[in-house]
């Protein structure tokens, strides 16, 4: 009977999860240990953190960034780095109030410095107001503005790196979406190094964990909350890719990890020195851009003064 054999491979206690590569079952305590060990191994392997770093976690208050803050709060002291949280309040009614409260409660409990940057403060209005008449573009507009707001938050708290809660599912979905859109530049784009004086390096320490592993970790540590979801639906392509990948992962375990390996392989074979893409500064706001006017100013319809 499978249930009679459901014991931790390390200590024999009842197992909470079955993992592959290598095949193992783990009890609650060993699962938590295993998850944290895989994250710190990824941080070391990909040189995400250096002693003296001040790491800003982009804390939405949702499950992934909550897990990221919990994990880094445990791991960073050993790496000689400091932790701070930045939350962006886009001003999305019925969604942001509760997640913002969750973020504030968590940082207070852990004693982590917390900065909140609002769209209203930065862009003159909240997302709901900025989107009137173009609600269907919600996620695209928000993505561009949130990126800028996070950069501003990182600047304000004096962080050296920005850590985001992207998990294996998110990353594998993005790889497949870039392939399906035929977007090779986006597939190759690596934001982990940043751009001196302009963008701080972005790191994704949870990209080695599946969404399921992250939620299991939160449940075991008592931090899983059923929070409202953002009312602005993501892109149709992402939701189709999510369903498709989840089915493939079930029938062919390891599919998502193999997609990431494929991406890394492609990045390596393309990482030959080439002409750097010319960047200039936006003639309206002065931020770095590849054109004359940055995407933030274009989206907001800002005019030259």
């Amino acid at each position: 009977m499978a249930s009679a054999e459901n014991r931790c491979s390390l200590c024999g206690e009842p197992a909470v999860a079955r993992l592959v590569e290598p095949e193992r079952r783990l009890c609650a305590a060993h699962f938590i240990e295993d998850v944290e060990a895989r994250v710190i191994a990824a941080i070391r392997r990909e040189r995400m953190v250096f002693p003296g770093d001040r790491i800003a976690v982009g804390l939405s208050g949702g499950k992934d960034s909550t897990a990221l803050l919990l994990v880094l709060h445990r791991l960073l002291p050993a790496l000689g780095a400091d932790l701070v949280a930045v939350t962006i309040d886009e001003g999305i009614a019925g969604y942001r109030e509760e997640t913002l409260r969750a973020a504030e409660a968590l940082t207070a409990e852990l004693g982590v410095e917390h900065a909140i940057v609002t769209f209203a403060d930065l862009f003159g209005d909240d997302l709901d107001g900025l989107l009137v008449g173009r609600e269907a573009q919600g996620c695209a507009v928000c993505g561009v503005l949130r990126r800028r707001a996070l950069a501003e938050g990182v600047k304000r708290v004096g962080a050296t790196r920005l850590a985001t809660g992207h998990n294996l599912d998110d990353e594998a979905q993005s790889v497949l979406m870039n392939i399906l859109r035929g977007d090779l530049p986006r597939l190759l784009q690596d934001t982990s190094t940043g751009s001196p004086g302009h963008f701080v390096p972005r790191i994704k320490p949870l990209a080695v964990l599946s969404e399921k592993e992250i939620v299991t970790y939160l449940l075991l540590r008592g931090y899983f909350r059923d929070l409202p979801e953002c009312p602005y639906a993501g892109t149709a392509l992402r939701s189709e890719v999510r369903t498709m990948l989840a089915e493939l992962e079930h029938r062919h375990p390891g599919t998502m990890v193999r997609l990431m390996r494929f991406r890394d392989g492609i990045r390596e074979s393309f990482s030959l020195p080439g002409p750097a893409k010319a960047l200039s500064t936006c003639r309206i706001c002065g931020e770095l851009t590849s054109g004359e006017v940055c995407r933030v100013c274009a989206l907001l319809g800002r005019e030259e003064r």
Partner: peptide, 25 residues
């Protein structure tokens, strides 16, 4: 009341709670 891998067998009298976390699809 305990998290288990899905290959565990459920028998009469068990209470199985399913926690969904993946939105969409």
């Amino acid at each position: 009341g305990k998290i288990v891998p899905e290959d565990v067998i459920a028998t009469e009298g068990d209470e199985i709670r399913i926690v969904r976390f993946s939105h969409g699809g």
